[in-house]
Design a protein around this nucleic acid. Structure first.
Length: 186
DNA sequence: TCGTTGATCGAG
DNA sequence: TCGATCAACGAA
């Protein structure tokens, strides 16, 4: 994806990324699930509760990686985005369908079932080797490559997972009928 | 269902 | 300083 791809609202980019391909090193996967977080009217967004996140969006360009440790255990991969009107936010990559480097993913995950490798935000970080060293790195070519989808897929929409605030916003997106989702859609 | 795990933030 | 909270996962 070029730089302009990330110049849109978080919800718009989260939707456009369904069906796109994410590559890191020799591993890659088809994005089947994302969530949008916005600094506008979204209390679940880190910019509402973390000073570091507010500074991050000020200092970095759209397309920059925001990598966050959740529950003291798992690293979650987000992409910083910014619309032309100034609205900024993050897109969380929540699940992938493994495409290449599957043997390496199985080693890293210590799992052999294809649907166990990347079916959650913590799982896919382990499978693709994403960690704290990638915070502030780039989704616009290196180290992470995003390739656009070839055709428009059927996309599901629902409430975001694992949050307690702004639960009414239907900002989770998923590829219809994918067996690689972190959880079914309602 | 339940325990694990550590960065962050606000109250005291 | 202390306690609550948190964009998850695996064991059972």
């Amino acid at each position: 994806m070029n730089e302009d791809f990330f110049r849109a609202r978080p919800t718009e980019i989260a939707r456009l990324l369904i069906g796109a391909t994410l590559t890191h090193g020799t591993t890659s996967g088809l994005i089947v699930e994302t969530e949008a977080y916005s600094e506008i009217n979204d209390e679940a967004c880190h910019t509402f509760i973390r000073r570091h996140a507010r500074e991050f969006v000020e200092k970095h360009a759209p397309g920059t990686a925001y990598i966050y440790l959740n529950y003291g255990v798992y690293w979650l991969a987000n992409i910083l985005v910014q619309a032309p009107d100034g609205e900024r936010g993050f897109v969380l990559i929540r699940a992938l369908e493994p495409l290449t480097g599957i043997e390496l993913m199985k080693e890293r995950r210590k799992k052999s079932k294809l649907t166990d490798l990347c079916s959650g935000p913590g799982k896919l970080s382990i499978a693709l080797g994403i960690g704290p060293e990638h915070h502030e790195q780039d989704f616009r070519g290196k180290p992470f490559t995003l390739s656009p989808r070839s055709s428009a897929p059927e996309i599901l929409t629902g409430p975001r997972i694992g949050i307690s605030k702004a639960t009414e916003l239907p900002w989770r997106y998923g590829l219809a009928d994918s067996p690689h989702l972190s959880r079914p859609f309602p």
